[in-house]
Amino acid sequence: MSYSDWLIQLAQTALVLGVAPLLSGVTRKIRARLLRRQGASVLQPYHDLLKLIRKEAVVAENASWLFRAAPYLIFATTWVAAALVPTFASGLPLGAVADIIVIVALLGTARFLLALAGLDVGTSFGGLGSSREMLFASLAEPAMLMAVFTLSLFAGSTQLSSISAYMLGPGAGINISLALALVALIIVSIGENARIPVDNPATHLELTMVHEAMILEYSGRHLAVLEAAAAVKLLLYLSLIACVFTPWGTAVAGAGVLAYAVGLLAWAMKLALLAFLLVLFETAIAKMRVFRVPEFLGIALMLGLLGTILLFVSRVSR
């Protein structure tokens, strides 16, 4: 581990934070164009965050310390999880201390705190959101872990860098388990990021809402931090899919400046493509009823399990 590796790690950590609002700006812009609207500038999320931060925070009278501390902790855990996903370069120092199961679990910690924050004020909307979020998570999290297991069994490792390297190598090819894992991971990403058809990130007053209901009582700087955390989470999922299923172009730690530049460009293009596909899917489909969502996520769980079982019976892993 050289200093340059740590420097790149630090750069990646800062980068995910800086780019996350841009990514949500881009998705909103694409969505608007697909709906034949002009749409706001892709920089609008930065303006929104800045505006929220400068505003006075209004906190409910009976809110406890947990309500005020939770946004920072949620943001921190999400950010740390995002910093563990290789973006433009892989094989970085943090990859050797926390694997993909840790990433899933860190997102779990963030969700746990968010659900508690939703219950803190004691309003019916907050409870509604928390309850539904935990229901969805009880299917989405195992589905994600099953997809992760499939990938780990292929690569013989739970570290993202190793999985990414394996996918580039000659061992990987078109494989049914891999395809099942990809579909499961996409469904989970849609569910976990509160996108249509599971939830609608653009509404506040809809009875089917989940994520927005939990943060309904937040305002000002607290809301800004939570919005940023949601943006980082979307970036995390897209980077994860890009890193595992389209590992081409990603620089390996210790490569030259040119390789990093290529990696950066490749990452940006992958993210743009994935964002486009995500929004295309969103605009083409209608939102589901709440009790259809468990079936949707259950499909992901079953696909993930099927992929893992196929692997278990078809090969002896290393």
């Binding site: 931060i53 400068r54 006075e56 209004v58 920072y72 943001f75 921190a76 309904l216 800004a224």
Partner: peptide
């Protein structure tokens, strides 16, 4: 570290105003 850095950064930039009021609840 991440939580502390965020809290510190937000404190530097953000408005410090905090108002207690009734719950919004839509």
């Amino acid at each position: 570290l991440a939580a502390a850095a965020t809290a510190f950064a937000v404190r530097r930039v953000a408005s410090h105003a905090l108002r207690r009021s009734a719950a919004w609840d839509c």
